[in-house]
Simulated assay, not measured.
Amino acid sequence: MTQGSVSGPAPGVARAVGSGGIAQAFRDALCGPAHQGSPQVVWADGGDRIVLQVDRLQVRTSGSVLVVAVDTESAEFGSAPLIARFVFGTEQDPAMLVAATDAAPLGHPQVAARWGELFRSVVWAAFARLVEVTAAGQQPGRIRLHEGGLEVTVQERVSIRDLAHAHFRQEQL
């Protein structure tokens, strides 16, 4: 497929996803295809089980920070929140699909230690997929969070090979 045959927004055009769309993408990812639309889902691994109350999933943005929280329930710890936080670039220093996150997910220490990495990984994968779908076949160029959701600006696709050749030629000067 050539670049000209890809349909989608023109380079420089921003596409938006509301906070409800972001939350739904995370709910769907946490539930998996077999349980989409369920108010809760059970994750099990090695004899450990935890219930995620995905119907109570919360997504908040504040500046360049995205916070995703879900209530969990387990026999060992009762009800406990599980929280993942991602910090993106700012308007002055925009980021593409890059974010900083906490060393460990937040919430009940033992719940976060056991299930936090998986939770954060699923949420991040869902976010990356949401950005890709929002870009509609184009190259995501800039991601901006705002109170109402997410804005993805697309850019021309850049060939890594061409970029490397240009860099090499520039170094030779």
Rank of each mutant, 00 (worst) to 15 (best):
residue 106 L to H: 00
residue 102 D to H: 12
residue 169 R to I: 12
residue 152 V to A: 10
residue 65 V to H: 03
residue 41 V to P: 05
residue 122 V to H: 00
residue 78 G to L: 06
residue 139 Q to H: 10
residue 13 V to A: 06
residue 64 S to L: 02
residue 58 Q to L: 13
residue 159 S to D: 14
residue 116 G to N: 10
residue 133 V to A: 14
residue 141 G to T: 11
residue 140 P to E: 07
residue 136 A to K: 15
residue 24 Q to D: 06
residue 42 V to Y: 10
residue 64 S to E: 08
residue 125 A to P: 01
residue 143 I to T: 07
residue 120 R to Q: 10
residue 102 D to A: 15
residue 16 A to D: 15
residue 109 P to D: 12
residue 125 A to I: 03
residue 168 F to P: 00
residue 108 H to Q: 04
residue 47 G to A: 14
residue 121 S to L: 14
residue 33 P to V: 03
residue 42 V to N: 09
residue 96 M to V: 15
residue 65 V to S: 07
residue 148 G to N: 11
residue 73 E to G: 06
residue 56 R to E: 11
residue 143 I to P: 08
residue 31 C to G: 01
residue 51 V to P: 02
residue 75 A to F: 06
residue 8 G to F: 13
residue 59 V to L: 01
residue 86 F to P: 02
residue 27 R to I: 00
residue 98 V to D: 09
residue 153 T to L: 04
residue 13 V to W: 00
residue 28 D to V: 07
residue 105 P to A: 05
residue 120 R to N: 07
residue 113 A to C: 13
residue 170 Q to M: 08
residue 169 R to M: 11
residue 126 A to K: 02
residue 36 Q to M: 07
residue 8 G to T: 14
residue 111 V to F: 06
residue 15 R to A: 08
residue 155 Q to W: 09
residue 104 A to L: 13
residue 23 A to C: 09
residue 29 A to E: 09
residue 102 D to P: 05
residue 172 Q to P: 00
residue 105 P to C: 05
residue 16 A to Y: 12
residue 35 H to E: 04
residue 70 V to H: 01
residue 137 G to R: 04
residue 166 A to K: 02
residue 34 A to G: 05
residue 108 H to Y: 01
residue 120 R to Y: 02
residue 68 V to R: 00
residue 43 W to N: 01
residue 4 G to Y: 13
residue 108 H to C: 01
residue 74 S to I: 06
residue 160 I to C: 05
residue 51 V to E: 14
residue 72 T to N: 12
residue 41 V to A: 09
residue 38 S to C: 13
residue 144 R to F: 00
residue 17 V to W: 02
residue 129 R to D: 14
residue 75 A to I: 08
residue 94 P to Q: 10
residue 31 C to D: 03
residue 169 R to Y: 09
residue 134 T to A: 03
residue 170 Q to R: 09
residue 89 G to L: 04
residue 6 V to K: 13
residue 155 Q to I: 15
residue 123 V to W: 02
residue 129 R to M: 11
residue 69 A to R: 13
residue 17 V to Q: 04
residue 43 W to R: 04
residue 55 D to Q: 11
residue 122 V to R: 04
residue 89 G to T: 04
residue 71 D to C: 10
residue 75 A to Q: 13
residue 83 I to R: 12
residue 88 F to H: 06
residue 47 G to K: 11
residue 163 L to C: 12
residue 32 G to S: 07
residue 118 L to P: 03
residue 26 F to V: 06
residue 88 F to K: 08
residue 43 W to M: 03
residue 128 A to W: 05
residue 13 V to L: 04
residue 40 Q to A: 13
residue 167 H to S: 13
residue 76 E to C: 05
residue 161 R to D: 15
